[in-house]
């Protein structure tokens, strides 16, 4: 048995696909348009939501900043920081959606590994930054609006907010994020193995 015979046999195989996969140009156009529309819609919604939130928070600050002290100002500043962080993360995620399948496999695998590394960083680092900023903003806000209230009420409110944020964070970390991290690690291992054997071994 020699390899050339195998090659000849391989090249003479019939190459029809099953009828369910007969791909028409109209189907391709429709699929591509749907994909484009979905990405565009998401970006528009994100941008509009971002803009609306910035305007609203700006209005709140301009209306009430004379009535409240520095915690109120810190709260507003923190919310703005949160939104900027969220926006940057959102745009970076969007940039990663543009995949170039016509790069060499080495470049494609490197790109996928970079994307997975970013996703891992998002879960292990940026989510924590977001959570701390959110907690800070809520704590400052509660502190200001409960100025006239009793100490018990004030500290109870702060305690509830803290417990809520910590609870949600821990629960998400132990359930959803854990699964995501396992998947990311698995995909990273596969890609590293592929890179090693396809490109460098």
């Amino acid at each position: 048995m020699n390899f050339d015979d195998l090659k000849m046999s391989w090249q003479t195989q019939t190459t029809h696909t099953t009828t369910k996969t007969a791909v028409s140009k109209d189907e391709l156009k429709s699929k591509w348009q749907k994909h484009q529309q979905a990405v565009l819609k998401m970006n528009i919604c994100m941008s509009l939501g971002f803009l609306a939130a910035m305007i609203e928070i700006g209005w709140v600050y301009l209306t009430y900043h004379n009535e409240y002290g520095w915690p109120f100002k810190v709260s507003i500043a923190t919310i703005y920081s949160l939104m900027i962080v969220f926006s940057l993360v959102g745009w970076r995620n969007y940039a990663f959606k543009k995949e170039n399948f016509d790069n060499s496999s080495a470049d494609y695998i490197a790109y996928q590994l970079k994307k997975l590394s970013w996703q891992r960083q998002l879960i292990t680092v940026y989510i924590w930054i977001y959570t701390v900023l959110l907690w800070l903003a809520l704590v400052m806000y509660i502190w200001e609006i409960t100025t006239g209230a009793t100490a018990l009420f004030r500290y109870s409110a702060l305690g509830i907010i803290t417990l809520y944020v910590v609870g949600i964070t821990v629960w998400t970390r132990l359930t959803k994020q854990k699964k995501q991290l396992i998947l990311i690690e698995s995909m990273t291992a596969d890609l590293e193995d592929l890179k090693k054997k396809l490109i460098t071994d």
Partner: peptide
């Protein structure tokens, strides 16, 4: 061929 190979890699990742 690059598109074919990279799509196959991506397909395999998604359909482990």
């Amino acid at each position: 061929y690059r598109i074919a190979i990279n799509t196959a890699i991506n397909f395999n990742l998604k359909n482990k």
